[in-house]
Design a protein around this nucleic acid. Sequence first.
DNA 1: TTGATTTAGTGGCATATACCACTTTCAACG
DNA 2: CGTTGAAAGTGGTATATGCCACTAAATCAA
Lengths: 158, 158
Amino acid sequence: MPKDTLPGLTACNYAMLRRATRKLGQFYDDVQAPSGLKATQQGLLYQIHIGGEPAMGAIAAALVMDLSALGHTLKPLVRDGFVETFTDPDDRRIKRVRLTQQGRIKLDEAMKLWQTAQQRFEDVVGKEKAERLRAMLDDISALDFDLPTATPAIPAKA
Amino acid sequence: MPKDTLPGLTACNYAMLRRATRKLGQFYDDVQAPSGLKATQQGLLYQIHIGGEPAMGAIAAALVMDLSALGHTLKPLVRDGFVETFTDPDDRRIKRVRLTQQGRIKLDEAMKLWQTAQQRFEDVVGKEKAERLRAMLDDISALDFDLPTATPAIPAKA
DNA sequence: TTGATTTAGTGGCATATACCACTTTCAACG
DNA sequence: CGTTGAAAGTGGTATATGCCACTAAATCAA
């Protein structure tokens, strides 16, 4: 039975990460469904909320997310009136983002549900273990994987 | 400065998970790009490979993935000739999946690149720590979050 | 055997994300 | 000043995923 000796996908860090993400997504989304927001959207609203009218690029950087992906993700939230954008008066390249009144209200509502999910998760997994998990994940998000695929030590400007 | 006292999104298990997933996705995808497969596709091919002509439902269950999502994800792989499907002769509801010859070759190719990425990840994070991470993620994928949202102890068939 | 129920997938629709090719602004230089 | 190159976003295209409504096939009951 070769299948027992094959490593299985449990060996792949990325595959494990995605699988666990799907699992948690189903859970958090389910709990937060009454608010009408997906957990992803709630997270984005929150990030904007604590960001102080952040620029698109700042949000993307904080979330380790592609800038264009952020733009797309933001669209439904703008369409539904939870978020609005405006051009930075000092640098017209920069687009800043903020919550609308409605967005703040909706975020409040969603946060209450979030707490339920979060609490439940920690009850099941253990507060201490959850903390360790988040710390590890935070580390990973900050890593630098530079593959030295022919790194010119110093481009020497030539 | 209220921003320093706000919990930041680092408190949310799900948000952390997604952020780390994006980070690793960018890394693994980048390393595996030469094969033409995304890391997600490589993972799926591998799962099929070790599954012994698995049924759609079996794959979805193993990956904690929605069945319809799996169907969609499979399409490009079928289109590109890496995977083929056939109806189970003993139960025509069941659709089984297997790699084509071309699919096996492509998987081999991608696995070599995967090993590079995997190795690099473990070099940076530490083999032991990576192992703990995967174990935790594996646990999470197997959890049962039943929120007793009015659980009728026994529907009593009425 | 027939009608109700359950199981396995499909298709449509919507969000999440990524990469690439542009466009618009700034900023730096000569 | 212009020219040039970097910085910030936008739009298009493609995959990843999920939910829901629906169909087909198998099972269970009566």
